[in-house]
């Protein structure tokens, strides 16, 4: 793994993400319960689990988008407030109004707003960075389009480009594969691998058990509590899946099949 951005002297720092005892409760019912998680640098991790397992909640709580009831989250040893500049976030596509009067390149440049800080406006440099990111997701020709004139997959890739320009070290993506076409799915996978090759760490909320083994090298099985977390080869086992999904056999068979083809 290329590692020229920080010194590897401290083993603690090599952990891209450390979550300790994280609990989030809506009203009195816990959405996630006492989650402990450690993630080394440079891996692609899927968070999988049944509906209502708290997958998105885990991401949002890590980024302090919703209040945590208890627990700490550290990115390379730093709390979120100090890690903002190197943590990227791709929200669910449906979380924004795509009729908003703005263009593709504008949306991509929003990824740079954090680096610009208050008051400073994006300029030519930001536009160039945005165009470069759009080329990576093969949307350069669409830069000037209004965002509602994109297909669902193109919208997802726009969001991805926005995360790319952030040039973060740790990425969180909330269901990037939801309802996208095959072209976009391949594009996203290519980008994920590219990110991993550059030493980035990516956490993806994922819903398709079939592709876990193919796309990811690390997996967290979540059902309010963490069932298991670790490398796919040792963690993505039928036994763990059964624990995560309860008696839903069809999922188990799919998962087992995916495991077989993935290995």
């Amino acid at each position: 793994m290329p590692d020229n951005e920080h010194s590897p002297h401290d083993d603690m720092d090599k952990k891209a993400l450390v979550i300790d005892d994280l609990t989030v409760a809506y009203d009195s019912k816990p959405a996630i319960w006492d989650v402990d998680l450690e993630l080394p640098e440079g891996v692609l991790m899927a968070i999988v689990g049944p509906n209502g397992a708290g997958k998105s909640t885990l991401i949002k709580a890590a980024l302090k988008l919703i209040p945590r009831s208890a627990g700490t989250v550290r990115f390379y040893g730093l709390p979120y407030e100090k890690a903002r500049s190197f943590v990227g976030y791709v929200p669910q596509r449906g979380s924004v109004d795509w009729d908003f009067p703005t263009t593709v390149i504008d949306v991509v440049m929003m990824g740079l707003y954090g680096r610009l800080g208050w008051f400073r406006r994006p300029g030519r440099r930001e536009r160039e960075l945005g165009m470069y990111a759009l080329e990576q997701v093969e949307l350069a020709d669409f830069a000037g389009r209004q965002i509602s004139q994109l297909s669902g997959g193109q919208q997802q890739r726009t969001f991805l480009a926005r995360a790319l320009v952030q040039d973060a070290r740790v990425y969180f993506m909330d269901e990037p594969f939801a309802a996208v076409d095959a072209v976009t799915e391949r594009a996203i996978v290519a980008i994920l691998r590219e990110l991993r090759a550059r030493g980035k760490t990516v956490v993806v909320v994922h819903h398709d058990l079939q592709t876990v083994a193919e796309y990811f090298d690390w997996v967290t099985l979540l059902n309010v509590e963490i069932v298991a977390s670790g490398p796919v080869a040792t963690t993505f086992t039928p036994d763990n899946l059964r624990q995560t999904y309860g008696g839903r056999v069809s999922f188990l068979q799919d998962g087992a099949a995916a495991l077989a083809t993935g290995d």
């Binding site: 988008l65 903002r84 979380s95 949306v107 707003y113 954090g114 610009l116 406006r121």
Partner: peptide, 22 residues
């Protein structure tokens, strides 16, 4: 004028605005 960029971002995508510290 002063908060154009911030207003735009927090109107379009409040979650990202919050994540970026705005």
């Amino acid at each position: 004028g002063l908060f154009y960029k911030e207003l735009k971002l927090s109107t379009f995508d409040p979650a990202l605005a919050a994540a970026l510290g705005f």
